[in-house]
């Protein structure tokens, strides 16, 4: 009897695929663990992504609603005309940003491990 039967190769392939998927997911940018909310150019709030909550951020046009749920964050509601930051949807990776320019509100995902850079120096 051979040590490996045809089905075994299929199982091994599936296992390798699963492992590769896990690696791909891990390399696909680090997941953020905190959220930085700015309003009117100032830091409005720095909070964790682990606690589900909805935050009301006041701006010149009205109140933007920032929602944190399941380790992700989004702008759920914004009084701006184009709704660009709302349409961006959920953010979870370090460095992802949603800007609600008319209402001067922005959210940015931060992580503990600094990922990449935000400026270059020679």
């Amino acid at each position: 009897m051979r040590l490996l039967r045809p089905g075994d190769y299929a199982v091994l392939l599936l296992g390798a695929l699963l492992t590769a998927l896990l690696f791909a997911r891990a390399l696909d940018g680090a997941g953020g663990d905190s959220l930085l909310i700015r309003a009117g150019g100032r830091v409005f709030l720095r909070t964790t992504l682990t606690a589900d909550q909805t935050i009301r951020v006041p701006g010149p046009l009205g109140v933007s609603l920032v929602e944190i749920r399941g380790g992700r964050a989004r702008v759920a509601q914004d009084p701006g005309p184009l709704q660009i930051c709302v349409h961006q949807g959920w953010l979870s990776r370090v460095g992802q940003v949603a800007l609600c320019l008319p209402n001067q509100v922005s959210i940015e995902v931060k992580g503990t491990g600094s990922k990449g850079y935000d400026s270059l120096a020679y």
């Binding site: 051979r2 040590l3 039967r5 089905g7 075994d8 296992g15």
Partner: peptide, 18 residues
């Protein structure tokens, strides 16, 4: 429950390890 004709011990141990 996998048919033994096609699946040997490796098909048991790899899923079990995962």
């Amino acid at each position: 429950k996998l048919p033994q004709r096609w699946f040997g011990p490796v098909s048991l141990s790899v899923p079990a390890a995962l």
